[in-house]
Design a protein around this nucleic acid. Structure first.
Lengths: 310, 310
DNA sequence: TCTAAGGCTCACTTTTCCTGATCCATTGCG
DNA sequence: CGCAATGGATCAGGAAAAGTGAGCCTTAGA
């Protein structure tokens, strides 16, 4: 590569030329007139050509300056535009999150992230991953319900909180059905957050209440709607202790068997991101914030984790 | 204009990307690896995006780096090329000089200028100006035979030495023609450096020797050939005291009437240049050198100027 | 297991850059 | 015409940026 002239001097020249004077340039660049004057002089010395004709009411470009200006302006413009694009990408955080986690955990907390990091523009996609799994090109970071997976060597993961399951229903439903022992669930409407019924299957596998068939019951598209149905007294949902904490704390849902908690076979909630993006500011900031936000949830269920893990 | 990233950091990035490692860049830019590392880190922080993936055996561009590199390389390339062109123009000194002055004054001295200023490439055009006069676009500086003219407000001029005229001939011709009084010139062959015969006309107008007709004689294309003809004994040339100083000093030409010196009506020799280029290094350097080189000539004829001026 | 390559870090030095005061020339206005 | 305002040049001194060089760490290959 050919030898470049001093680039900061070029910047001063370009600004001065654009403003038709050193005062304008000095204001744009937030330096004094003297600094501009010196920069321009340095550049002129470097090139061996005067670029400005100094006049009383400002400066005028020489023939050489007229040749140089458009080149430099154009070059700086393309650089600035490219940098802008990169920075815009860097400032846009694309999150993908499954509906249940999104509605019941992320959305209520996201405003806090926005205020903590106004420099990032958040674009949330609330949806399940496509068949192919989390795509680090499509999204910067994703919430995943899984066993802290390292699906691909290109992905990195960070656990947020475990998924601990126990049946829950509206207080009135509890009374109506006289739910004192797990076997009583055989007479209840089971509410499923997916068609797979994996949640109820896991729990009945763990505690084997006689006569309770996880294949029965009603299906909902996600845990939020299933939970709301339970609150309305439709039946018994397999509550995620974290995602349903609000209802459990408020008493709109009660857990009839608080000692019978099992971990979801699918694993807990974790964050996923492309390994090469793991440390970039927007991802690191979100991971750090999410970890802190999840800390309260982890604490609330921590005494259950050991028991459930058995 | 959008905000530019730190330009020197960009330079480091570009070199590092081109070399595929910081070591290569540090060698190209003549700094240490640490300096490159710091520059790149600064740029990455500024953009909010990592540009390199650090590996054991060097460094690989990230997607962002791949986007940025061609833009920056291209931009720096055009800037470097433009600067190169300006500098090349700045280093090439185009001189235009009429043949007489060129052969008898400039060429013998030009080597001295070249050694004094090896940084300039000299391109000499030995020719008369076109009808339109000295063109400050075609040439950086010109030698002009004229009355310190300020032909145009865009031109600046600097006198070098006066043109003082007196007849001269070979010593043998002087003896043969017995040239003791100016009227004896009537029997001599007059040698003219131009068809206009302006030189002889000026001298005969000044001293009015009876019977001497400036319309007579032989024409030559320039003073050099006319002078050589005089040395060979062809006739009497109207010698320029400066341009013919060598022959006069050596005695190959003698001036029969050393007190009868008149200034050329065309004026002396001066330098011309575009006013806007007057101070640029190559022109200033040449003016300064030419003035010093002409000082000896001015001194040699200074005692005659006052007399001739009358 | 060891070595070499290549990046990172940090305390320290050098260079560059900027400031702020002061001049100076031009210009436009009372 | 005098005189303030504008705009650039210059300079000493101090702040900020860049560079240095030694030591550390990780990885690849012998």
């Amino acid at each position: 590569m050919a030898k470049l002239p001093p680039l900061n001097a070029l910047k001063a020249f370009e600004a001065a030329a654009r403003h038709g004077g050193f005062v304008g340039a000095s204001e744009e660049l937030h330096v004094t007139r003297g600094a501009i004057s010196r920069h321009v002089k340095l550049l002129e010395a470097h090139l061996g050509v005067p670029l400005f004709v100094r006049q009383a009411q400002g400066v005028r470009l020489t023939a050489a300056g007229l040749k140089l200006l458009p080149v430099v302006s154009e070059a700086f413009g393309t650089i600035a535009r490219a940098a802008e694009n990169l920075s815009a990408d860097a400032a846009e955080l694309r999150i993908i999150c499954p509906p249940g986690t999104s509605i019941r955990w992320l959305l209520p907390r996201l405003e806090d992230f926005r205020t903590a990091h106004p420099e990032f523009r958040v674009r949330l996609t609330t949806d399940f991953y496509p068949e192919s799994g989390f795509d680090p090109i499509e999204a910067d970071i994703g919430f995943s319900v899984s066993n802290w997976p390292n699906r691909s060597p290109d992905l990195a993961a960070q656990p947020l909180f475990p998924t601990l399951l126990t049946p829950a229903c509206a207080p009135r439903y509890l009374r109506d059905k006289a739910l004192r022992r797990p076997e009583a669930l055989a007479a209840c409407e089971l509410l499923h957050e997916t068609r797979s019924h994996a949640d109820w299957t896991a729990w009945t596998d763990a505690f084997r209440p006689a006569g309770v068939d996880p294949a029965r019951g009603q299906d909902f598209p996600n845990i939020d709607i299933a939970t709301k149905a339970a609150v309305m007294g439709v039946g018994v949902v397999m509550a995620d202790l974290v995602l349903c904490r609000e209802e459990l704390d408020a008493g709109t849902l009660v857990a009839p068997f608080p000692d019978m908690v099992c971990p979801s076979p699918l694993g807990g909630i974790c964050l996923l991101a492309g390994r090469d993006k793991w440390q970039i500011p927007k991802v690191a900031a979100f991971r750090s914030w999410a970890d802190a936000a999840a800390a309260a949830d982890r604490a609330a269920v921590s005494h259950l984790v050991a028991r459930a893990g058995g």
